[in-house]
């Protein structure tokens, strides 16, 4: 659970979100991948310390659940912060592959099956 972020955290998690407990957008799932925009847009607001931690963690694409685990924060807190970063244009969000039992994606299933077979 611990990582190289030795800065520690002395604030309660929801203090990081200004007391908000719900995100402004609902499009972040546990396996939505987020990636820091590089270079950041010129007009973007300067990220706060905790936002910078997130941006460092998603220099490469990373799933929301992984980000929360690596930052040792609840997913709900991370999602609220990601909403801010998304609205500031500092990250992109890539939604999961849509899955519907009624219209199964055979190609996708076969790819997963083959990948497991290689393990």
């Amino acid at each position: 659970m611990t990582d190289s972020d030795a800065s520690g955290r002395l604030v309660r998690p929801f203090a990081l979100t200004g007391g908000r407990t719900r995100p402004s957008r609902a499009d972040f799932t546990l396996i939505t991948t987020v990636t820091a925009v590089d270079p950041p847009p010129e007009l973007a607001p300067r990220p706060q310390a905790e936002q910078s931690r997130i941006l460092r963690r998603c220099a490469r694409p990373v799933a929301v659940a992984e980000l929360a685990a690596l930052l040792d924060l609840p997913v709900s807190v991370v999602v609220i912060m990601l909403c801010d970063l998304l609205e500031a244009g500092l990250i992109t969000a890539h939604p999961p592959r849509p899955v519907s039992p009624r219209t199964p994606d055979l190609d996708l299933l076969q790819k997963v099956r083959e990948g497991l077979g290689r393990l």
Binding site: I31, T33, V34, D38, P61, T92, H94, P96, R97
Partner: peptide, 12 residues
């Protein structure tokens, strides 16, 4: 997904 940003994989 902008040019300098690595492409994100699909997830399931």
């Amino acid at each position: 997904e902008t040019a300098g940003t690595p492409a994100a994989p699909d997830t399931v």
